[in-house]
């Protein structure tokens, strides 16, 4: 007696779900990724426990540990910074100015800039910080 086992029905696996997942992951990493060069040099912001959420928009002044400065990712000389900030402030007096300075930058490179921005009429100047990492 021969017993015929019924042939298993082959379910074709759909790859549409895989494509969906991969696509969502792709969009996620594209959105959170920072492809923009905020500074042409290494900037490690200082750590602070009491930092608040970073508001979006504005101008970013990056300051390297050796005092080199960049405005919105482009390295600039000191005299050009004031001129460019002034023109931006004339266009929008409420514009946010972010100072993304290296934690080892000396204050004589940073504080005069803040005072200068205040003299120009800037209303919101913030220092970029990072929350302390987990204890290892």
């Amino acid at each position: 007696m021969r017993i015929f086992r019924p042939a298993r029905r082959h379910h074709p696996e759909t790859i549409i779900a895989l494509i969906d997942v991969v696509f969502f992951l792709l969009v996620f990493f594209m959105l959170i990724g920072r492809m923009d060069a905020t500074a042409p040099f290494d900037v490690t912001p200082p750590t602070a426990l009491t930092g608040a959420d970073m508001p979006a928009g504005g101008i970013t002044l990056s300051v390297a540990a050796d005092g080199t400065m960049a405005l919105d990712g482009e390295e600039v000389f000191l005299q050009d910074i004031d001129q460019r900030i002034q023109s931006q402030l004339e266009a929008d007096p409420d514009i946010l100015i972010r100072i993304n300075a290296h934690r080892d930058a000396v204050l004589r490179d940073i504080l005069p800039r803040i005072a200068q921005f205040e003299a120009m009429g800037a209303r919101d100047v913030v220092l970029v910080v990072t929350p302390p990492g987990p204890a290892r």
Binding site: R34, P45, A48, T50, G51, A52, D53, M54, P55, R98, I99, I114, F117, E118, A122, R123, D124, V125, V126, L127, V128, V129, T130, P131
Partner: peptide, 9 residues
């Protein structure tokens, strides 16, 4: 990068 800010002005 988890960036925060403290107001300088």
């Amino acid at each position: 990068l988890n960036l925060d800010m403290i107001p300088a002005l």
